[in-house]
Design a protein around this nucleic acid. Sequence first.
DNA 1: CACTTGACCTGTCCGC
DNA 2: TGCGGACAGGTCAAGT
Length: 289
Amino acid sequence: MPELPEVETVRRGLSELLPGKQVARVDFDWPKGFPNAPGDVAQFLIGAKVTSVKRRAKVLLIELDSDYTLVIHLKMTGQLVFVGEQRFGAGHPNDSLIGDLPDTSTRVTFAFKDGSQLYFNDQRKFGWVRLLPTVEVPNIDFMKKVGPEPLDDSFMAKQFEERLRRRNNSNIKAVLLDQTVVAGIGNIYADESLWGAKIHPTTLVKDLRTKQIETLFTELQFVLNLAIEKGGSSDKNYVNAEGKRGSYLQFARVFRREGQACPRCNSVIEKSRVAGRGTHICPKCQRLS
DNA sequence: CACTTGACCTGTCCGC
DNA sequence: TGCGGACAGGTCAAGT
């Protein structure tokens, strides 16, 4: 569930909370999700201070003054929740999706010197945490292969089209979900942007006109920016760094709205499977050309 | 080589 | 009520 807007929301929250915090203790019993050697953790994480929190695609980068970086992927059900010293051991606010921490989904606990804590929760254990030398981060497989950031000022419709057309024989939804084409798009914002551009998700890229791709580019940026503004989409698991929900799904036009009226033409929204994913369309607005 | 499908996990929901 | 199966969807490995 965490796609670009959700991860960016977490990043913005953590970047207000973490810089300057010094790691005092790390508790984890999850070798598969956090495979670093205990020696590296002891030497480069314990005692280190957070310098900044960055994001690339759907990956969070918590940089430390030890010149190491915590690289974290939330995958589908991951959460990074900060509990400040003033709430140490206490519950969370009323608009939280979660209760007292740690809970049964807590995989890693980072405890800071001032008594605050950062919890990495992940119900389905798809996510992961790596501690890497900061200079090595760009060299890991994921970083080498991942495509450009869709909201970068330098990313233009022409480049978007050029990258899409490398996958001319695939359907557009599969290509949007391919992180090596463009970074950060997942199932929610693929469906939402395709609705915005009135493109059927199974349309082959080669059958799309340049004008349609330009519209899709505009709609994609609109949807991603709106979702960031709304703090992301919370279905079951996603929460921000303070444990609070995002509200984008209240504004969603098709995602999870099967059986409801299309806000543009009033037709009934349908759900099917495309590229192995639940896919939502308006059958009238998004005709297969 | 290009593209699609299955595996990784766990909790929830649905039908019988 | 209990149980089996489908489903949720990010990414990589395996399959076509």
